[in-house]
């Protein structure tokens, strides 16, 4: 993966940008839910849109659109990709 930059939280991603999952700081059932949906370290994820009032946010991951609240997305670390546009 070229173009790797700094480590961010998934929640800080703006719509349209693509990033790669680094690690999950979540715990319990939510952590398992997220993992089972294929959001595992290394996965590419694209921020698609925010809800009408800014939260939750919909992400495209493995061809599915998944909405997460900002509190939860804040606990997922990602690496922003500059040239990730074609990857997903």
């Amino acid at each position: 993966m070229k173009g790797a930059e700094r480590i961010d939280a998934l929640a800080d991603l703006s719509p349209g940008s693509v990033c790669q999952i680094v690690s999950l700081e979540l715990s319990g059932l939510l952590r398992r839910r997220i993992l089972d949906l294929g959001i595992v370290p290394g996965t590419l994820i694209r921020c698609i849109r925010r809800g009408p009032s800014g939260d939750p946010t919909a992400y495209l991951v493995r061809e599915t659109l998944i909405a997460l609240r900002s509190e939860d997305a804040a606990q997922i670390s990602v690496r922003t990709l500059l040239n990730g546009e074609e990857c997903i």
């Binding site: 939750p56 919909a58 659109l65």
Partner: peptide, 10 residues
């Protein structure tokens, strides 16, 4: 407190 939301948008 509100817990989490994982919502699939098919």
């Amino acid at each position: 407190e509100p817990s989490s939301l994982v919502l699939e948008l098919p």
